[in-house]
Design a binder for these strands. Structure first.
Length: 313
RNA sequence: ACUAACAGAUCUUGA
């Protein structure tokens, strides 16, 4: 009961409330088990409070319950997510010393972490260690590597990894396609991206809002805002609704073309749909008016942002 | 219902 509750609170980023429940349950004679601790640790990691996660971890080491593989994986992921890769590697050693065998998840998290900070060499070292331990890379591992190579501009390597994935059998999933489509878009290879979109549909996969938003962004950033709107029409036809990210990309695209007025109209449409604008959307539109020299209006949007309860960062 | 991969802005990225 308590675990379900804590998990629910953590997934909703209510870590403070989760902590209250966590502290209370002990007093009510129900001691937290490993899963409870893991959930709390993950909750802290997801909100970038790794130090607090480590406090709980140390308590587990001292008074139990002893950490298991999931505890270690969760913490390693937490360190990876905030770029502390050396701490993540230290935890890998520590878990081995304590007789806890790393698994595919452990290595995949580290590979992803190294890819995210552009350390492809280290990512492939981790990959090799994983293989030496006769663990096999799965679609998540490969997708992380593909993304890493795209972000480092090594499109050819990324594509050869994709081929390898296909050769090893198994269909690619939507998320893998998304990474490649977004990679192409970021490299301004829009026709490749569109070809891949068609291919995934042919293979019976349903593109989702991330797929379409990547394309919309690619088009906007290549001076084809009008085509971006056609993609949005298409996604709506496919019953895939544009979300905050999608609109935000369009707002930015319009503003970059000097069409801040049109962007503002779009914002009206977002509000009418009940979407809540965030600081990213506001920054785009404010910047749009700044670029037009209309500082008065930029400031009034800033006010509107604050009164809408959105905190400027 | 304990852990891993995907989309948006601004500023910065120093010999």
């Amino acid at each position: 009961t308590y675990n379900a509750l804590i998990n629910g609170l953590c997934s909703n980023r209510k870590i403070e409330s989760a902590l209250k429940v966590f502290d209370q349950m002990g007093r009510k004679g129900c001691l937290p088990n490993v899963k409870t601790y893991n959930e709390m640790i993950n909750g802290f990691c997801m909100t970038a409070k790794i130090e607090k996660a480590m406090v709980l971890f140390n308590r587990m080491l001292k008074v139990g319950p002893p950490p298991n593989r999931i505890t270690y994986n969760t913490l390693i992921n937490g360190y990876c997510k905030c770029g502390y890769l050396s701490n993540a590697m230290r935890l890998l050693d520590f878990m081995k010393e304590n007789g806890c065998e790393p698994d595919e998840w452990t290595y995949t998290e580290l590979i992803c972490g190294f890819c995210k900070v552009g350390k492809l060499e280290l990512a492939s070292k981790v990959f090799d260690e994983m293989v030496e331990r006769s663990l096999s890379a799965n679609e998540v591992t490969y997708t992380a590597l593909i993304e890493g190579h795209f972000k480092s501009g090594e499109v050819d390597v990324a594509l050869s990894l994709l081929e390898r994935m296909e050769e090893m059998g198994g269909e690619l999933n939507v998320q893998t396609y998304n990474v490649v489509i977004n990679g192409f878009c970021k490299e301004n290879m829009l026709s490749e991206a569109e070809k891949l979109l068609e291919k995934m549909i042919e293979r019976g996969l349903l593109p989702n809002v991330v797929t379409y938003t990547s394309l919309v962004d690619g088009l906007c950033k290549n001076g084809a805002v009008h085509l971006a709107f056609r993609v949005v029409d298409e996604m709506v036809k496919q019953d895939c609704m544009p979300n905050l990210h999608t609109y935000s990309v369009l707002v930015y695209g319009l503003c970059q073309e000097g069409k801040a007025e049109e962007a503002e109209a779009l914002i009206g449409e977002m509000e009418a749909k009940g979407l809540v604008l965030d600081e990213v959307t506001y920054t785009s539109i404010i910047d749009g008016f700044v670029m037009l020299g209309r500082l008065d209006h930029a400031f009034s949007l800033l006010k509107r942002m604050v009164s809408a309860g959105c905190k400027p960062n």
